[in-house]
Design a binder for these strands. Sequence first.
DNA 1: ATAAAGGTTTAGGTTTGTCTAAATTTTATT
DNA 2: AATAAAATTTAGACAAACCTAAACCTTTAT
Lengths: 230, 230
Amino acid sequence: MKFSVSEENYIKSIYHLQQQGEVVSTNDLASELQTKAASVTDMLKKLNGKNLLNYERYQGFTLSDEGTKVALSIVRKHRLWEYFLVHELEFGWDEVHDIAEELEHISSPLLVEKLDSYLSHPKFDPHGDPIPDINGKMELRKQVNLIDLPLDVEAEVSAVGSQSTELLELLKHKNIGIGTVLTVLRKFTFDNSLEIKVRNFPPFSISQQLAQTLFLKPLYGSTTVGSISK
Amino acid sequence: MKFSVSEENYIKSIYHLQQQGEVVSTNDLASELQTKAASVTDMLKKLNGKNLLNYERYQGFTLSDEGTKVALSIVRKHRLWEYFLVHELEFGWDEVHDIAEELEHISSPLLVEKLDSYLSHPKFDPHGDPIPDINGKMELRKQVNLIDLPLDVEAEVSAVGSQSTELLELLKHKNIGIGTVLTVLRKFTFDNSLEIKVRNFPPFSISQQLAQTLFLKPLYGSTTVGSISK
DNA sequence: ATAAAGGTTTAGGTTTGTCTAAATTTTATT
DNA sequence: AATAAAATTTAGACAAACCTAAACCTTTAT
């Protein structure tokens, strides 16, 4: 079955919101998509009619198994293209999101599989997010939020919680990226800022807001986890 | 300035029709785009309003300089992507047209330039068509239609006049592709069929219809030719 | 030169995806 | 438990891109 760009964007956003809290609300989706609640309701009816949603009016909604499958295939395309843009075309990891947002709607399934082979089946995109395989399965990194990382434990930055230009600019300034290995030296309760240490750099501090967007993998540990595929 | 996918498709089709005869008609464009004449008129008004056309009602139309610039940038993207699909992703040259038709609408100019560098600035796409550079300039092959090729002259197939599946299927069967070197042994006036010879194959015959779709470059000879760029 | 034929445009309508404003349902408060 | 507040849905409109049918030019043929 084929879907419009608009339908695909709704499906993908619902998927992402579901990662946070079980059920998704009309208003949350509207603000995620920069649109109005009334427009969301219209689209929900349409997607529900195609059996992509579990939807009861006024009660919130989630993706059906079928909807999840569609979402995962879009996420797969998005992350494979991001990988291509960064590792082949030499884009910066902070420049690729908008382009991948367009490329993810190219419809050829054969293209996706050829791209995947060409890139040697990467498991994670340049932001550290896992790339679903053709059946929707992906590796799950045992990730810890930097806020929760114990003192003096070495860990590798594996994902960032947002793609905003502002965040990526700050990370670039502080020389932090996917793969950076660091340890927390001190935590200050006054403002929840952290003093951290990166190899070859003097210690420096980062704010609570920044720490909350960084996810790390304590050195060693990764598991494969199932998902929808029927 | 940004254009919708629909606008871009109209611009590209007008460009291609102009390659054949000077001025383009509403009906020709409608049949090229598989749509109705009335829809074409609607879009013509829109494109004319954006100064992309030279248009007088009932009198046919052509692309303005600005319109030509837009067309060339779309053609550039289409042909670069085709090159990528065939030479990097290992698609067959007969499988890439529809995918490139989608990819050509991805808007990032930086992406196009990075792709061009990545591919080492190719001058011709897998069908033998020239790829415009960033200023719209492209090489022009001194091409001869197979019908017009003199007897016993060695020439290399450099372009095919259509992308129809039927044609490509037949070419595959006869082992003819871009780069194939052949000579014409005889011409039969009864049905205008040709007896041709390809190295390492016994001579075989091809029909007038097929010969008309093949363009060749007599061995050696290519020129750079200017185009819109102001 | 004029009528028929053919091509083009206009008029009015449809679908998709959006919107505002009003109505309805749920939730939160007292 | 009743009502105020907040969230959601419905109703009615709009723009883009398409359509059919009718009107309008241009070309062609007699």
